[in-house]
Structure formats: structure tokens, C-alpha cells
């Protein structure tokens, strides 16, 4: 389906950004001079006049008649599901959990499946930002989860603008949705998502508003460079911030006020349009959950396992049931809130 690009910046600003629904996926930034992503925020810089603006069309939060809610259930379409972990000690030492995402991306890059990977890094300062990784070292520098909106797709837009192709991308479900919408937009005669060769989604329940969360940390932390964030699986109900000096724990009830409002409308926990989806494995600190959804994903995984880069194991039934339940809960909550919002 080709969506006509005829609705632009004004609707994006009025309906998404000023409505407090922006989840800072970065899809609207990095392509034109009218939007910037900086320090966890999408910033409209000037009024655009283009009547062919694509920004509103590809925004995952925009409602423009194109179907928003998934008609999937559970974790969406998938071929296989595993417990998986990296065998590379360097990756494991830096990984949030099992190091699966870094391993797969490095494998895809080194095998020539992709030429570069759009990732999220900690940014120059303390804020996460999109990053175009072109080497193993680049990919390793981006390992670890951020838990705040990161504008990662602005790096995709910059790469597209620079004419890059065969791109891999690691992103949250909202970012996968933006990429899916890009695949439906033809721009100057070209499919916007055509240069994307591989999509790996990260499980996501919600993400925090970076600036609000940062203010909270400034007030409630005695400085120090943050090296890792973690929200251990239920019933921990806490956010753990690891700095060079110490480990700080905050009850989730203190953190929830900073959840991006747009995240509460999201119905996709696992990134259902990706080739592969990766998340935590409940009850384990060294394994990931790995969902294989496409042939491309299956081939990549097979290659990585064959080379001994990844170890896979059968996915325990109990974990599967919990995953389905969590995913279904998020879908139902999001659907309900969206219906309420549109009333």
C-alpha cells in the first residue's frame, strides 16, 4: 500500500507532540531542518510548509486512518522462540543480560548481511541518542538498555539521507512500527524502508521521559557516571541504577510518573514486525528471550548458532505463559486507553 504523503508537520505537532504523546522514537528527526532530537526530546524548530511532509505519516503515534492497533494476540506472529545467550566473553561482560542483540548485529555486520547498524548509544553527554555503528567496536559501545526515549531513528534518517543501504536496526516496538510505516510511504519514487535489511526489536513495557527522569536523578543521586540501568523482572518493582561508585535502587512507584504518556497507548510489547525480538528471560541474569519471526531472522540465527556465537535452549513453558500474559496485558491496557482517549 502506498500512503499519499499529504499531512505534515502541523498535525504531528498538534496531535502528537503538543498532546504529550511523543515517545521520542526519532522517526521525524534527522531528515529535515524542522525537527531535532536532543537530550530525550523531539523539538520542532520551525514551521514547515511542505504539503508532501512524511513526518506525520511515519509517526507511530499518529492516527491517520491507517490501522494502528495490531490485530495480533499474545506476542504476534512468530516462527520459533528460544532462550539464548552469547558465547563471546567480551560481549557477555558488557551485556544487559545474554548479549544476544550485540552478537547477532556483529555477526550480521561481519558476514556482510548489513553494512551498518542503527543503534542507540549513551550519546556524547549523558543522554541516549541514535548512532550509526559500522564496526564491532561501535556495536559494543552501544550495549546495555536505556529505559528512556532515545530518538534512535534520527540516526536512521541521517543514514538514509547520506545514501546508506543494507542497514540493520535495533529498536523498541514503537521504532519497529515507525519503520513499518516507512515501508508504506513512497518518497521521491522510493520506498523509504528499502535500505533496511535487518530489524531486531527489544521488548518494552514502557520508556521514561528522559528529561523528567534526568531531573529526578539529578535531585536524587549524588552524581557519578551511570554505567547501567535495569528493571529486574517482577516482582522486584524497582529500578536499579548502577554508577561507577555504587548501586542505587528506586521503587517503580517513584519512577512511573515519568513514563512517556504515548507508551501507555502502545499495544506491542515485543516488536511484532521485526525479524527477531529480544528481551529478558524471567528468572535469569545471563539468558535472553529470543523470538524468531521471519525467514531472514531464522537464517541469521542459524548462521550465528552454527558458528558457535550463540547458544540456544528450549524456551521453558512457564516463561512462555508469563510472556504471553505480559504481552497480552500490555495490548489490552493500550487498546483500552486508546479507546478512552478517542472517546
Amino acid at each position: 500500500m502506498i500512503v499519499q504523503t499529504s499531512q505534515g508537520q502541523t498535525r504531528l505537532i498538534n496531535e502528537v507532540i503538543n498532546n504529550g504523546l511523543c515517545v521520542r522514537c526519532g522517526a521525524c528527526a534527522g531528515f529535515c531542518p524542522y525537527f531535532d532530537y536532543i537530550d530525550g526530546k523531539i523539538i520542532p524548530l520551525a514551521p514547515c510548509c511542505s504539503d508532501t511532509a512524511r513526518c506525520f505519516q511515519i509517526c507511530p503515534l499518529a492516527e491517520h486512518g491507517e490501522k494502528n492497533e495490531s490485530d495480533e494476540s499474545g506476542i504476534g506472529d512468530y516462527r520459533k522462540i528460544f532462550a539464548a545467550r552469547s558465547t563471546d566473553p567480551e560481549i557477555v561482560s558488557r551485556a544487559q543480560y545474554g548479549g544476544v542483540v550485540s552478537t547477532l548485529m556483529i555477526y550480521a555486520l561481519e558476514k556482510g548481511e548489513i553494512k551498518a547498524a542503527v543503534l542507540t548509544s549513551r550519546g556524547n553527554g549523558s543522554s541516549p541518542a541514535g548512532f550509526l555503528a559500522e564496526s564491532r567496536g561501535d556495536i559494543l559501545s552501544c550495549s546495555g538498555s536505556e529505559y528512556t526515549g532515545s530518538g534512535g531513528l534520527s540516526a536512521l534518517n541521517r543514514a538514509l539521507k547520506a545514501g546508506k543501504d543494507m542497514l540493520g536496526i535495533v529498536g523498541l516496538p514503537c521504532q519497529m512500527e515507525a519503520v513499518r510505516r516507512m515501508s508504506m510511504v513512497e518518497f521521491s519514487g522510493e520506498n523509504l524502508s528499502a535500505p533496511i535489511s535487518l530489524k531486531i526489536a527489544l521488548f518494552c513495557t514502557w520508556a521514561l521521559d528522559h528529561r523528567a527522569f534526568d531531573d529526578f536523578l539529578v535531585k536524587n543521586m549524588d552524581g557519578g557516571k551511570i554505567i547501567k540501568y535495569d528493571i529486574p523482572p517482577p516482582p522486584s518493582e524497582k529500578l536499579v541504577v548502577q554508577t561507577l561508585k555504587r548501586k542505587m535502587e528506586y521503587p517503580l512507584s517513584d519512577i512511573r510518573p515519568f513514563i512517556q504518556q504515548g507508551c501507555l497507548l502502545c499495544e506491542d510489547m515485543t516488536g511484532e514486525t521485526a525479524d527477531l525480538s529480544v528481551g529478558t528471560l524471567e528468572g535469569s541474569k545471563s539468558w535472553n528471550t529470543l523470538i524468531v519471526r521471519t525467514q531472514r531472522g531464522e537464517d541469521l540465527l542459524a548462521g550465528a548458532v552454527k558458528q558457535g556465537l550463540l547458544e540456544v535452549a528450549e524456551f521453558p513453558d512457564e516463561n512462555f505463559n508469563h510472556l504471553m500474559e505480559a504481552s497480552e496485558n500490555k495490548r489490552n491496557r493500550g487498546r483500552k486507553r486508546r479507546i478512552e482517549k478517542n472517546k
Binding site: 529535515c32 524542522y34 520551525a46 511532509a53 512524511r54 539521507k161
Partner: peptide, 12 residues
Amino acid sequence: EDCGCGRYCTRI
């Protein structure tokens, strides 16, 4: 005037 610029130099 196309998307991606919108006559940025002369308009903004």
C-alpha cells in the same frame, strides 16, 4: 518545496 527542505533557506 519538497519534504525534507520546504524552502528552508528563503522561508526560514
